[in-house]
Design a protein around this nucleic acid. Structure first.
Lengths: 342, 342
DNA sequence: TTTGCCATCCAAAGCGGTTTGGAAATGATT
DNA sequence: AATCATTTCCAAACCGCTTTGGATGGCAAA
């Protein structure tokens, strides 16, 4: 059942039927109702492909998932971010198209999305320092929103980010207040922008207390259980081992926990942990009482907000770039306690 | 730059240019090369929207992610499955569109995808027992491939699944061989098909050794760290506590590990664990030496294969349904050992 | 009655490709 | 030279919708 057939059945022109269904004013209310009823009765759904060609809009948004060819790691926050964004899209009648792209093909991939007209805009994931994607998308004139920021980029662009620096500063201060002075940082890969900001926050906190940072207490790696384990094991084996850890993710923290357990130490008593909690749905930080003390910010909610921002930018292409900085909340769990006396 | 313009520049008709680019035989090789060169030079990319309307094919595949409105949990294997599938799609020039749908709207969502012509086929995720989506998709005549199976469905349909029953049977037998007789099962939600099959495998193994299953040793819940912790804690508190666990996922296993650690027990010595390992990229089971003994089957690879199967079905709509059963390998890690003497 | 203005509807021209059904040119065959 | 088959190209229809630029008729104002 297409427009033409429906129009024929109604004894109207396709024009009028189209206008009736799309709420244009130049159509009699009576006929509009008649059209609406007939559309429902015949279960008419306009063909998306035709709409897209006619309007020139894709009614779709792209998410490019870069696969690091070296590690082949899919970002674990991805699923929840997508879930949040997806809600916003389906509410607005937009589709979400995912492109899984080996990272060396990313530029070509963006250009194609643009020139083939597959999508109306793009969410940029996991920005790195001076991320080349931002000037690129700017050049080809594609609406986009970055989830995160890219230090070193001077162009104005739209982004939505968590205040990672502040979060880690607060986390570190919290531990300092408990008397810890040897605090290990188990960070993500530091060519990622968020990881740099987190380190900055950690260093800032130490600096204001006049504590010299120890490079041996700062690890940077992929955020996996294994790498968390490795980093923590190494640090705990030191003569002057840390009494606390600031950890970039729930997953790394599980590795850190394993390292601590393996040495027969007890979390919250011998060693404190404070993590950043993205509130991944399959990785809840406890139900009622949080297991870990954490800086918390829902990545799913971030997805929703970023999507809404992008839709807004697509609808108003000439508006100024938008920015939104979310603050993480500091929640107290069972993984932190006063520094043990030596 | 569109077809017409390109044709004009070449002094050819759009017809010929289109045919030259799409490899039709009725065009001189010399002109084809000329066209190809010009297309590359002018950076011509056919407009996807136009192709779709003209051919009637969407050149896209849909993945519907149901969000359980109760738990709001995104399936953690999802990201890796998608990553695998995405590779297959982009190789074939297909787009992947994701719909995030509250599970009560799922049926409507499938019908819309079909009637609006958004996609050419669908991957069905996380099938339940007698999953209603299978007859539905069958009815509306939509090509689809199920990741998993649906016990109780008599219709023939295409699927790709891991032999979950066999995997858990082998895992349980492995523990039995080590002398364990009290073996806990930490399973996923048992309205999910895979979870039922896993339990069956577990029960089969016990049965062949003449061991009566103890309901108190079988837990079924969402596969989160917390639920793993809860289930294991409860079982370990029993008078006749289990000396081994079969655990449905790496994530639950982390909860199980925490429960074991909390009681001051040692994994592999006091308590054995064997898990099912989907080889999630951010959740590797150790690097060289596996941490956990596991039944292993890459969900990413499953995604790739399921996608290829679907593309094949879309290309040959009248072929018989395809089925593929993947066997998990049993890999020995450090989390299992002989049953402790009492 | 005429004029002008709305309100309501429609024909037709897009959107940018693919595909059908020739047409012209070339070469081979008789 | 005439016929026929091939090769090579093209005009035009089509996919299903939106949107522009009228057309028509009714009614109020002049």
């Amino acid at each position: 059942m297409n427009l033409k057939e429906l129009a024929q059945k109604l004894g109207l022109s396709p024009t009028t039927v189209s206008r009736a269904l799309n709420g244009y004013p130049e159509v009699n209310e009576a006929t509009r109702e008649r059209v609406m009823a007939a559309a429902k009765r015949h279960n008419y759904r306009p063909n998306t492909r035709a709409i897209r060609l006619a309007t020139g809009r894709a009614m779709a948004v792209g998410h490019v998932i870069p696969i690091a060819t070296r590690h082949e790691i899919v970002n674990p926050v991805f699923a929840d971010f997508i879930a949040g964004a997806g809600e916003a899209y389906s509410r607005a009648g937009y589709d979400m198209v995912l492109s899984v792209v080996p990272d060396e093909d990313e530029e070509r991939s963006y250009r194609e999305l643009k020139s083939r007209g597959t999508v109306d805009g793009i969410i940029v994931h996991a920005p790195r320092l001076q991320d080349p994607r931002i000037p690129l998308l700017h050049d080809i004139g594609f609406p986009f929103v970055v989830h995160g920021r890219a230090t070193g980029t001077t162009l104005p662009y739209s982004w939505l980010d968590v205040n990672n620096r502040r979060a880690f500063q607060r986390a570190t201060e919290f531990l300092l207040d408990l008397g810890h002075t040897r605090i290990g940082l188990v960070n993500g890969l530091e060519f990622m922008d968020f990881a740099v900001r987190r380190r900055t926050g950690y260093l800032d906190a130490l600096a204001t207390r006049g504590i010299l940072p120890d490079p041996a207490l700062m690890a940077s790696d992929e955020m996996t259980e294994t790498s968390g384990f490795r980093a923590a094991s190494r640090m705990l084996a030191m003569a002057d081992a840390p009494t606390a850890f600031v950890v970039s993710s729930m997953i790394s923290a599980m590795g850190v926990r394993r390292a601590i357990d393996d040495r027969g130490l007890k979390i919250g008593r011998d060693v404190s942990i404070i993590i950043h909690d993205d509130e991944l749905s399959y990785m809840r930080n406890g139900d009622d009482v949080p297991i870990y003390t954490a800086t918390r910010s829902s990545v799913r909610d971030a997805g929703r907000q970023a999507a809404e921002m992008l839709l807004d930018i697509i609808a108003n292409p000439d508006s100024a770039p938008q920015q939104r900085l979310l603050e993480a909340e500091l929640i107290i769990g069972q993984s932190t306690g006063p520094a043990p006396k030596r």
